[in-house]
Design a protein around this nucleic acid. Structure first.
Lengths: 120, 120
DNA sequence: GTCAAACTACGACGGTGTTCGTACATTGAG
DNA sequence: CTCAATGTACGAACACCGTCGTAGTTTGAC
């Protein structure tokens, strides 16, 4: 990309406002095992991790896809830091929008013995 | 069907045991607006309703499909009563398996103004 | 037995989701 | 500048999901 265009766009990322987060999008985002694992890892003190640090069992393209689904559904917030894209849970926003939902899902995942591949 | 076979099968319906309910199946089942509406209606004192009583904006075949997804994921329990198939929420089973999850989802739906078609 | 009501099974269709490889963009280090 | 690291965009392949119509099953009423 040309230098002017680079400076102009500044690598912005689209996020829904807290009010725009839709329940069905959140539930759909969380119904995938890989995305559920990402959310779990983020909740376990691994906030602000680069995508590559998750060591997911999928290709880089697929990883990008899952992070985008989580971001566009309002579950995570992402920002650039050098060549890396850092991710963190939108814990407070979700608590305001859908009280108790995220914690219930995370508790549920910890109780579900059928979910493999814990990283913590 | 022959009379003998009818008596033999007795119109059984498959349900997962409480221990077999999987989080991802539940979240996936609840991420559809029509199924979310069914669950909401069932939670609003409309327990033990026949499928047709929901007046869903889809065909009967599609309705059957959605009720089966809810049943096979462990969200509802169904039993025959005459020609009707009665449905009820597995509230206690879900609370035991994934504490707080169902109530959080129902609360979230009531807070989500983007969800149309409330029947109550 | 006959008939209507409630529901299912099946196949089909279009849309969407997940996955990947390849090519490209951006950044920071040397 | 060059290069490696990180990640994206794009298209393709494949499977799955939601929807429907049609035909059939089961039940209860007559």
């Amino acid at each position: 990309m040309a230098r002017a265009a680079r400076a102009a766009q500044g690598r912005q990322l689209e996020h829904p406002g807290t009010d725009q987060i839709r329940l069905e999008d959140v539930l759909s985002a969380l119904s995938d095992p890989i995305r559920l694992r990402i959310v779990h890892d983020l909740s376990q003190g691994h906030d602000d991790m680069a995508c590559i640090a998750f060591e997911l069992p999928v290709s880089k393209s697929t990883s990008t896809h899952h992070f985008r689904v989580l971001r566009e559904s309002g579950v995570i917030r992402q920002h650039y830091e050098g060549t890396s894209r850092m991710s963190r849970l939108r814990t407070d926003d979700l608590e305001e929008r859908f009280p108790g939902l995220l914690s219930a899902v995370l508790l549920a995942r910890s109780m579900d013995a059928t979910v493999p591949g814990r990283t913590v």
